[in-house]
Design a protein around this nucleic acid. Structure first.
Lengths: 140, 140
DNA sequence: CTGGATCCGCGATGATACTG
DNA sequence: CAGTATCATCGCGGATCCAG
């Protein structure tokens, strides 16, 4: 009954698609909210940037390069990015298995902006942290 | 005693601060994950961009300009941004109350990038949606 | 090596009602 | 107008075990 249910359970076929899109329609009233909320699954941006620095990477390599990510979250994140067409997943049928992840042109077109954003974060971290500190002190 | 304790329940005072920072330390191993995950509370980016288009806005104005946001979430988002020093909150002591929100220079320095990002989202939405569609069909 | 499947807690978010 | 307080829900994300 529940043979291969990918990550988000697929039983019906048409029914599922319908649900998928109606769900989408609800959340995705606006592309900004939609795409942007995807981008920061907490791991997505990091993943894209990491991939942006290489041609392609394997699962284990990614896991090492993204500190703190769990196996599951890496899998989920990669699948989502694949769904969105931001990266490709290539399986080499060998033993042991070898799978390579690589950004698509669409994915590449994002990397620049994300790096800028992370640079901004790095540069302004100090101010933000100090601001948070002061904010708390003000209230006590 | 608990005069203005914002939204996140504060009982102790020193204790609370301690927890706050230790929590921070845990999540904030890296500035990218930290700042970036804040940015897309699903509403934050939208809020910053909206404020970026005006000099300053009032609570209700913001609520109207950000479709779908709840009163509560707007409050929370604004408070977080204030904490981080990205905007200022000015209260005019009158009846009825008047509160204005305005980006700080730090906040303004982000607007450009966020607009770029949302432009990207708008431009590539179609591809992403189609990609998702194809992805589902492939699996069925 | 590269994940899939499951269980589960906690925090984020929404709905609703109330206030100065 | 601009919130605050409270409750209920729901999905993220971690831990763990399993498999090709």
């Amino acid at each position: 009954m529940e043979v291969t249910n990918s990550l988000k359970a697929s039983k019906g076929s048409r029914e599922e698609i319908k649900n998928y899109f109606s769900d989408s329609a609800k959340t995705k009233h606006c592309p900004i909210t939609d795409i942007l909320s995807r981008l920061s699954d907490k791991w997505t941006i990091h993943t894209i940037i990491t991939l942006g620095k290489s041609e392609s990477l394997r699962f284990t390599e990614l896991k090492k390069l993204i500190p703190g990510i769990s196996q599951r979250m890496l899998t989920v994140t990669l699948r989502t990015l694949e769904e969105d067409g931001l990266l490709t997943r290539t399986i080499f049928p060998q033993i042991p298995p070898r799978v390579e992840y690589k950004l698509t042109p669409l994915g590449r077109s994002l990397v620049g902006q994300l790096i800028e954003l992370s640079d901004w974060a790095n540069e302004n971290m100090v101010h933000i942290l100090r601001s948070r500190e002061e904010y708390i002190l003000k209230k006590v």
